[in-house]
Simulated scan of single mutants.
Amino acid sequence: MTPQVLVLQHVPWEKPGRIATAFDEIGLGYQILNVVDKKKPDLPSFDEVAGLVIMGGPMGATDYDKHPGLKAEAKLARAAIAVNKPVLGVCLGHQIIATALGAKLHRGEQPEIGFAPIKRVDKHDYFSMWDKQINVLHWHNDVVGLPEGAQLLARSPLTKVQAFRAGSALGLQFHLEVSSALMEEWLDEPSMVKDLKAAGGSKSKLREDFAQYNPLLHPLADQVFTGFAARCNSYARRLVRAAQEGAPKDPVIC
């Protein structure tokens, strides 16, 4: 089987968006699964996974009693990072990776929903085009600490860890993946609109802000996600070579 990227989605509207577009543009296959409520999820063979993407969702990253599949996602993230398999987490996914690596999860001082600035703390090749400060789309209540040994990439006044690198993993608390079409899907989802209004926002204001910031964010998102897709593609080729040469498969480390 040709190695594919595994995309773990938790709710129908939190789609990979621009991340999937980056895979499509280089012809890299991916599989989208929702295993959040499955205690023993049926996941693809680990040695056939070219990369792992963990998307957002309204649940807590360590809410294992209500959503037992989250524990399997955390184990998969640790195993992938242990063998240097590319991993990307967005919002909840960012928190799942961080907590899987030992960071603490807690409720933020207040919800961070809508466009607001983050400050780049450190440069990485994923973020080589970024200015020191940029307005991005936020949509979260929980926050995480920085995993031990991880590189902090961005922060905001309300959230100390907005982006980090930990080995082969990249965590993004904010939402670069949201295209204009996906934004409209979010604004058609009652639970998202409820969160937005509870945080003092409105559909009209969010649409105005998206129109203002999207022209700058789009190329930055493309840079991050095409870079990640390229890493996954390289890893896929490595898996194919290993299979052809009869080399040992990726071990699953829990």
Rank of each mutant, 00 (worst) to 15 (best):
Q4R: 13
V7G: 02
V7D: 01
L8Q: 05
P12A: 09
P12S: 09
K15S: 09
P16F: 06
A20G: 13
A22Q: 08
E25D: 12
I26A: 03
I26F: 05
L33G: 00
V35Y: 02
V36K: 05
D37S: 13
D37E: 15
K40M: 10
L43M: 11
E48W: 11
G51N: 11
L52T: 15
L52Y: 10
V53I: 07
V53C: 14
G57H: 11
P58I: 06
P58R: 14
A61Y: 02
Y64N: 10
K66H: 07
P68K: 07
G69F: 01
L70P: 02
K71T: 00
K71H: 09
A74I: 00
A74C: 06
K75F: 07
R78P: 00
R78L: 12
R78H: 00
A79K: 02
A80K: 05
A80Q: 03
A82T: 06
L88G: 01
G89W: 01
G93I: 02
G93Y: 02
Q95S: 04
I97D: 01
K104M: 04
R107N: 08
I113C: 08
D122M: 14
D122Q: 15
H124D: 14
M129D: 14
V136P: 13
N141P: 04
V143P: 08
E148V: 15
Q151S: 11
L152K: 15
L153N: 07
L153T: 08
R155P: 00
S156N: 10
S156W: 09
V161T: 12
F164D: 06
F164K: 10
A166H: 10
A166Q: 08
A169V: 05
Q173F: 10
V178R: 09
M183C: 09
E185F: 00
W186A: 08
P190A: 11
S191C: 03
V193M: 04
V193S: 04
V193C: 03
K194P: 01
D195P: 02
D195C: 13
L196F: 11
K197T: 06
K197G: 01
A198S: 14
A199N: 12
S202P: 03
S202Y: 11
D209T: 14
D209V: 13
H218W: 07
P219C: 04
V224I: 15
G227E: 11
A230V: 08
N233Y: 09
S234N: 14
S234P: 00
R237P: 00
R241G: 04
A242C: 09
Q244W: 09
E245F: 13
E245I: 08
A247V: 01
A247I: 01
V252T: 07
C254M: 12
